[in-house]
């Protein structure tokens, strides 16, 4: 069962990779791959949170197994080593706003991006242990996950129309 979970996560990953839009002719293909991979990782965060959020919002019935699976995926995704996808010089000022929304501040002196990523993996770990314990526990944990997503987007991702 466990390997099936990992396999399906892999499939979703591949699907997400395939759907990222591109306006990227002028960008080094290796850099472009890194940008697409991190955007796909973000899409997977959103996809798995969507499973949990639909329950939190009351749009689908709470299901302990499904909630645990989604929260487990999220926790694993937040533990991926990000070195290769967050290449220095892959910010929006360098690559263009149509390619990435990552702000140069990520790579500047005094950047707290590492702390922000850690805050998310801690919140995701909390969610992993709470998700199977009923709807109230899930609702209690999702707020902190949202705060840690937003905490990083606040400083390091460009806002757009």
């Amino acid at each position: 069962m466990k390997s099936l979970g990992i396999l399906s996560a892999g499939l979703v990953f591949a699907a997400a990779l395939g759907t990222v839009a591109s306006g990227d002719d002028h960008v080094d293909p290796a850099v472009m791959k890194a940008v697409k991979a991190r955007q796909a990782q973000m899409q997977l965060y959103a996809f798995n949170l969507g499973q949990l959020g639909a329950m939190a919002k009351g749009e689908v019935d709470y299901d302990a197994g499904a909630a645990s699976a989604a929260a487990g995926n999220l926790a694993k995704l937040t533990s991926l080593n990000g070195r290769a996808v967050w290449l220095p010089g892959s910010d929006d000022a360098t690559l263009g706003e149509d390619v990435t929304a990552a702000l140069p501040a990520i790579w500047e002196e005094g950047s707290e991006i590492g702390d922000k990523a850690k805050a998310l993996s801690m919140a995701a770990a909390e969610m992993e242990s709470a998700a199977g314990d009923g709807l109230d526990a899930l609702r209690g944990a999702i707020g902190d996950v949202g705060k840690s997503c937003g905490g990083c987007h606040e400083d390091y991702r460009r806002s757009d129309d």
Partner: peptide, 22 residues
């Protein structure tokens, strides 16, 4: 729900100054 958690209907998460508003 966005104003409560920052999550959009697609479960993207609000950033920029909106994170502080939320």
């Amino acid at each position: 729900y966005y104003l409560e958690t920052g999550f959009t209907p697609d479960f993207d998460s609000a950033g920029g100054h909106m994170a502080a508003v939320i």
